[in-house]
Amino acid sequence: MTKTNAGRFFEDYTVGDVITHAVPRTVGQGERALYHALYPARHALYSSDVFAQACGLPASPLDDLAAFHVIFGKTVPDVSLNAVANLGYAEGRWHLPVWPGDTLRSESQVIGIKQNSSGKTGVVWVRTRGLNQREELVMDYVRWVMVRKRDLDAPAPETVVPELAQVVDPATLVIPQGLDFSDYNVALAGEPHRWGDYQVGEVIDHVDGITIEEAEHMLATRLWQNTAKVHFDATNRADGKRLIYGGHVLSLARALSFNGLANAQMIVGLNGGAHANPCFAGDTLRAWSEVLDHAETDAPGVGAIRLRLVATKGAAGVLRGEAGKYHPDVLLDLDYWALIPR
Rank of each mutant, 00 (worst) to 15 (best):
T284F: 01
P58K: 05
V230K: 14
A67V: 00
R286G: 08
P155K: 04
A22K: 15
V23N: 13
G130L: 06
S106Q: 05
D64W: 14
N132R: 07
S182V: 14
M266T: 12
T20W: 13
Q53N: 11
L164R: 06
F72I: 01
D63Y: 01
R143K: 14
D293Q: 04
V110T: 02
L62E: 05
E163F: 02
V167C: 10
A323L: 13
D298C: 11
H193I: 11
V123P: 07
I267S: 12
V249S: 14
I305F: 06
I340H: 02
D64V: 14
K114P: 00
L309N: 04
I244R: 05
A264D: 09
L152N: 13
A85E: 02
A220H: 13
V50Q: 13
G260V: 08
G112Y: 00
H36A: 15
K241T: 08
A67W: 00
A83G: 10
V268P: 02
P97W: 02
L104W: 08
L62R: 07
I210T: 04
D49Y: 06
L292N: 11
L332V: 01
S257M: 09
G130R: 08
V249F: 09
R32S: 12
N263P: 05
M146F: 03
A238F: 10
E31Q: 12
F181K: 12
L219R: 13
R32K: 15
W337H: 00
G88K: 05
D140A: 10
R93H: 03
Y89G: 00
D197R: 07
V249Y: 09
V15L: 06
A22S: 15
R134E: 12
R306N: 07
V186W: 04
V126Y: 03
T121N: 13
P278G: 00
Y198T: 02
L261Q: 03
W94S: 11
L261V: 01
P300R: 06
A281E: 04
V18D: 09
E216D: 15
L65E: 12
V147I: 14
S108Y: 05
S106D: 04
M266W: 15
S251G: 15
V123M: 10
D183C: 14
Y336G: 14
N271E: 01
L164H: 10
G260F: 04
R254H: 13
A315E: 15
G130C: 11
R308P: 09
V160Y: 03
F181P: 08
V70N: 07
T312L: 02
V203I: 14
R105E: 10
V15M: 01
D140H: 10
D197G: 08
E296S: 14
G122R: 02
I113S: 01
K120M: 14
F9P: 03
Q109M: 09
R242V: 11
R242F: 05
P77G: 06
P40C: 01
H231K: 05
L261E: 01
A41K: 10
K149I: 02
R254V: 10
T2D: 14
A262R: 00
W94L: 12
Y245I: 07
D233R: 06
A304H: 06
D329A: 15
T235R: 15
